[in-house]
Nucleic acid binder design. Structure first.
Lengths: 224, 224
DNA sequence: GTTGCACACTCATCATACAAGTTCGCGCTG
DNA sequence: CAGCGCGAACTTGTATGATGAGTGTGCAAC
């Protein structure tokens, strides 16, 4: 049992909402109905509904009732671009990506399916096609394609939420250091991407991990 | 004026909390005092306090009163606990943590300083002290201590944002499967933690990485 | 000095009542 | 018959009083 009655009612209603018994947009039972259903006083019912409202699960209209809201299942993670200020932050972010993405590459090597192949190859060719303008976006698209190939939505969500930041910041903060203007630079990045993609598509997790680590490690050195 | 009275009381109390008039740890006025102060009924006061509690601003203890909590500092990442539904999600989350945390352990091995040692050892002993109740929290505290030792705030933020979810979900969704009731289970987890901590504190990144991977891999198997 | 207990204070819950907003149908009017 | 008004019924919002249960305190007995 719960420590409080209202907590029990909250749990019960939450289950029904998350299980789909109470679809988004549908009306919750009225307070008096809930009183009967859970055999508690109206005080408890009102407290429970208040908590659901505070969590953004329902919305109450005076004189009409409470209605289930559509929970925006956008992404599990969200980043604030303003969270990155200093050069050290960018370095730390790259260290962070090394850990996350090298493992993602290894997972992608073992978990990818046929449907993942085309996006990866598309991202590769898109990088060569992209001029100086869209190079960073194309770079990121490749990394995102690898993340998708893991079949693990957390990698996709995390990288997806990192994306806008990675695209915005190198330009504004680092100036020319990270700019993709150098042709030889672009070519080297492309070769590194090729190595990662080859290992992933070959199903070789250790090589894929090493290739991604090498790629991001090189990027880190270039920015430093 | 607000549309409802309770909203006005919520706004008033929130102002005082955020302005520092009600410092973290201090006690809120009792319900009867708030009734006088805002000239509303207990019903309204209770609803207002309920909403503050749902927002994580205060905590209420039966028979003592409500107390202001330390406002959670904004982190770069945020997770919605409702984003995890199915058993497969929990599996994917563990795969995700394997990638992130094994690298964090390696980074911690090379980057940790003297100030990081005490929290790690404290978390270790805290896990043995914790009964069946706080085992999950203590487990998580250890992982967070490792993340801090990396000196990379992104690892700390990410793990910190994952924390509440990891603590909440195994209980509700997985039932007994992940519960820490088994004594031998607890002992094994503790030994794995010891291995991770030893490698980190010894400054051996490869061993630390392997130990953390082993630990989370084992956890994954236990939950499956 | 320590122990034990009564008492005051707190939140949790219940029951009841009334106020205020919404919906719906019924009857009246044209 | 069409349209309008109006009230009955239902909803949430607020008020009030009472009781139960957990916590802390001070005083009295030992």
């Amino acid at each position: 049992m719960s420590s409080t009655l209202s907590a029990a009612v909250v749990a019960g209603l939450k289950d029904k909402i998350l299980a789909g018994d109470l679809a988004p947009g549908s009306k919750l039972p009225s307070e008096s109905e809930l009183v009967e259903e859970y055999a508690v006083s109206r005080t408890v019912v009102r407290e429970a509904v208040t908590r659901l409202r505070a969590e953004g699960l329902v919305e109450t209209q005076h004189g009409r009732g409470s209605f289930v809201l559509t929970v925006p299942e956008a992404s599990s993670f969200s980043v604030e671009a303003s969270a990155i200020r200093t050069h050290a932050d960018v370095m730390a972010m790259l260290d962070f990506r090394i850990g996350v993405e090298s493992e993602a590459a290894a997972l992608a090597a073992t978990h990818h399916t046929e449907v993942d192949v085309a996006p990866i190859e598309e991202a590769l060719s898109g990088f060569t096609r992209a001029g100086h303008e869209g190079a960073v976006e194309a770079d990121f698209a490749f990394h995102l394609a690898i993340a998708r190939a893991t079949g693990n939505r957390f990698y996709v969500d995390l990288l997806g939420s990192l994306g806008p930041m990675m695209i915005m910041l190198p330009r504004t903060r680092l100036g020319e250091a990270y700019s993709m203007t150098d042709a030889t630079h672009v070519e080297r990045v492309q070769r590194e991407h090729d190595n990662v993609a080859a290992a992933v598509l070959a199903g070789d997790p250790d090589t894929a991990r090493a290739a991604m680590r090498l790629h991001l490690g090189n990027t880190r050195r270039r920015v430093t």
